[in-house]
């Protein structure tokens, strides 16, 4: 072992494919002149050959089957949610169909004013007014009419097929949403329904 450690390091680099041409030349030259290093190098190459040798390392023939049978079975509701995520269009179409069957379209077509009752709201010429001094502590939804807020709403105001008349000086802590188109209205309904479906499955 009189030779430089550098030579052994070069052997390893060579075996890793890390030597450039000139370094390789240097290594070769040394190996040709030094028997000890030549021997060392042969042993290294042989070691690699031994551990790399066509070892027929294989698991049992039914390995795949065994793995597949051990996979956790998906909970039904998980797979339903997953299915809905994977197929959003079919899900939307199905919900659309259900809504249609359940008569929400006819509800849309009735141009009747609807608003929450029993909340001290005043109605004047299709305008629903939250009067001054009145505070509503929840979301309100007005359909087929305009809304004017003079009092306070601690929640969202949703106006379907109507307008929020902004001249008023009242306060709304949540969002004011105006939904004028049947599709955006539907979208709103779908989101709501979807949300409740996901809430149910939680």
């Amino acid at each position: 072992m009189s030779c430089d450690k550098e030579i052994v390091e070069m052997m390893h680099q060579y075996l890793d494919g890390d030597l450039d041409k000139s370094e390789e030349k240097k290594l070769r030259a040394h190996l040709q002149s030094c028997q000890a290093c030549q021997h060392h190098f042969h042993e290294l190459k042989r070691t690699v050959a031994l551990v790399t040798a066509n070892v027929d390392l294989q698991p049992s023939p039914d390995f795949t089957k065994k793995v597949m049978s051990q996979l956790p079975t998906e909970k039904k509701r998980n797979s339903v949610i997953r299915w809905m995520r994977v197929h959003p269009m079919i899900t939307a179409a199905a919900i659309f169909f259900i809504l249609m069957m359940s008569g929400v379209f006819s509800a849309w077509n009735q141009d009747q004013l609807s608003y929450p009752t029993g909340k001290n709201l005043i109605v004047k010429n299709d305008i629903v007014i939250v009067p001054e001094g009145v505070t509503i502590n929840e979301d309100i939804e007005i359909q087929n009419g305009n809304v004017k807020i003079e009092g306070k709403v601690n929640g969202d105001v949703i106006v379907i097929n109507g307008e929020h008349l902004t001249a008023s000086a009242g306060a709304v802590s949540g969002d004011i949403k105006q939904i004028d188109q049947i599709f955006s209205w539907l979208w709103y309904r779908l989101k709501e329904l979807g949300q409740s479906v996901f809430d149910l499955t939680k």
Partner: peptide, 24 residues
């Protein structure tokens, strides 16, 4: 990833030898 369990079979049969070799 989308929830098709049977598709996992392909993956197992392709990688089983390599994974087994590492463990062995």
């Amino acid at each position: 990833k989308k929830g098709d369990q049977t598709a996992f079979e392909d993956i197992v049969s392709y990688y089983q030898n390599n994974v087994f070799a590492i463990c062995f």
